[in-house]
Each structure stands twice: as C-alpha cells, then as structure tokens.
C-alpha cells in the first residue's frame, strides 16, 4: 500500500494511554477502528497517510457494548455492526430501524469489521447509522485527556468528512434516550441491486404514537438541503407532529411539506428530480412501516 514506510502504528494499552498518545501527536494521528473507510481513503489518495495510526482494537473490550441503563441506550464506539445485530437493538421493535440498516449495510462480511464509531466519524451521506441515529436524537461522547463532552449528533457532523471532533479526542460512545413503548423506527434504502449499494436515497423514521395521534416523530435523510451529510427534515416533522396518522396526511407531508425543505442533486448516478420523488416515497414508506410496527402488524 501507498506510503508504507512513512506510517507508524501505535497500540495503546488503555483508553487513557490512547488519549495521551492522541494529545501528544495530534493532528498527525488518525484513529483506526474497522479500517473499512480509512484504508480506502488512503488507498484512493483522498487523504494523505497520517504519520501515526492509533490502533483502536486494543480498546475493543472496553468500548464494545450495547447497554440500556436508566432509560439511556449506550453503544460503545468500537461495537461492530455485527455485534449490534446480536444485541437488544435487534430484538425490540422500537429499534427496528437498526434491523433495517443492518439488512442493507455493506455486505455480511463487512459487518464484522465496520464499527459504529467509524461510521459516525466517516461522516458522509452514506453513513447509514448517522441517518438512523439522528432520528433517535443521539449524542456522541467525546473524550480527551482534558475530559469528556457530549455533542448532539447533528452538531457533531458538520459537513462531508468533517466533524466537530478535536484532533485529540476519541468518540467513545453514542447515547440516546430509550424510546417510549408506543414507538418504533424504520430505515429505507434501495438501489439498482439489493445489497452493496449506496442507496438512491436513504431515509430513517422514528415514530411515537398515542392511539393514532403522532405524539412525536423524527425523520432524517441522507441529505436534506445542500450539504452532503445526513440531516433531519425538521419542517416535515413539525407538520406531522400532533396530527392523526392517515394516508392523506402522509401524502400531504410528502407532496407539500417535504419538497419545501428538500433539495437534491443530479450526478452521474441519477437525477435530482428522481431523488426528490424517491425521498417522498421513502418518507411515506418509512412512516408507514414504523406505524405498522408500533401497531404490531409487522
């Protein structure tokens, strides 16, 4: 691989050792988790090989977990996508969106390598767990030698491949409030083929119902306006909140409200028009799926 001679790799003994190493050598260090994103960026010369790689595998025992404690869901940054699938998140209908993401994520083998922390830090519109966790209103926990801070995911991801992570920080955890019982979630992604896809558009939904009334709803897309990073469709959420869940309502949200906040791009893969249309369809399908899950018909 390119630049082989120039890079050193550091294997920390503990989290604090890792943070110290980072602090000392930032910004010439890149943490490496699964490596499925980082190594391709180096291979494709999209970034210069860093002077040091900080190997996160030694922190695996410490930072790989899914816990639900005191109404808070905590996911360790080094949890792999496969490990997520073995957790409570794949067994409780409220988190069904995790099952949907998993079903369309990379390929089966890739799920053993890719980590949740790597996914959030990759910070592209194709980071499916960003799209998903935005609707759980998740926060990331950032640690450095100076201490810990928590940032909303929406404030963490700033732009394509750009985050609010300081060079001396690591993401150690993603947290979100345990959703209420009458809620569920969904994730929609499709393309020319079934798997190993970027998705023409991707959409995530969180829906909390009271009877048929939308008590709360959060919706996100791979992109909403301009910037190529996942974001919430806030106007659409606002429109839906408090209303009664009907197909007419979905129709109106998709046709009238969503277009007012959604702007899509044309590239060699497909057109902005089609992406907008598919955003509408995904919105409706995502909501419907989440609804059916709350109601237990799915």
């Amino acid at each position: 691989m390119v630049g082989i001679e120039l890079v050193s790799i550091y294997k920390p003994k503990s989290l604090s050792d890792a943070l110290e190493f980072l602090d000392k050598n930032a910004p010439d260090v890149k943490p490496i988790a699964g490596g499925t994103e980082l190594l391709l960026l180096i291979r494709d010369k999209k970034i210069k090989p860093p002077k040091y790689l900080l190997d996160l595998y030694p922190l695996k025992k410490q930072l790989s977990y899914v816990k639900v404690e005191n109404g808070i869901v905590r996911i360790g940054a080094l949890t792999t996508v496969y490990e997520l699938s073995q957790s409570i998140l794949h067994r409780d209908k409220r988190f069904a969106g995790f099952v949907d993401v998993y079903d369309k994520f990379g390929t089966m083998a890739l799920r053993f390598e890719a980590t949740i922390g790597g996914n959030l830090n990759a910070a592209t519109q194709y980071s499916d767990y960003i799209t998903l966790m935005l609707v759980f209103d998740a926060s990331v926990r950032l640690e450095s030698v100076k201490g810990v801070r928590e940032l909303k995911l929406s404030e963490f991801v700033l732009d394509k491949r750009k985050t609010a992570l300081n060079p001396n920080e690591l993401v150690t955890e993603v947290v979100f409030r345990e959703p209420p019982l009458d809620s569920s979630s969904s994730f929609v992604k499709f393309d020319r083929r079934e798997i190993l896809i970027a998705g023409i558009v991707t959409e995530a939904t969180y829906l909390h119902l009271e009877g048929d009334t939308i008590k709360d709803v959060r919706i996100s897309f791979d992109m909403v306006a301009g910037r190529r990073i996942p974001a919430r469709a806030l106007k659409t959420e606002e429109f839906l909140r408090g209303k009664s869940f009907t197909s007419d309502l979905l129709e109106e949200a998709a046709e009238k409200v969503l277009p007012s906040e959604m702007s899509r791009v044309t590239d060699w893969w497909t057109t902005a028009d089609y992406r907008l249309e598919m955003s509408k369809v995904s919105l409706k399908r995502g909501l419907k799926l989440a609804y059916e899950r709350v109601k237990g018909v799915r």
Binding site: T107, D191, R192, R193, E194, I195, L196, I197, A198, W268, W269
Partner: peptide, 23 residues
C-alpha cells in the same frame, strides 16, 4: 458512465453494479 472529458466514473465494483447473491 463518463464525465465530459472521457473519464470513467464507475471504475470499481461498488459503483459498477453486478448482481449479488441477493439479486
């Protein structure tokens, strides 16, 4: 897919789609 200068846009197997086991 080519750009206007004749550069191929999809030169790998995640952008050049071929059927997978699930298709």
């Amino acid at each position: 897919y080519y750009d206007s200068e004749g550069r191929l846009m999809n030169n790998n197997l995640s952008t050049y789609h071929i059927p997978t086991a699930r298709d």
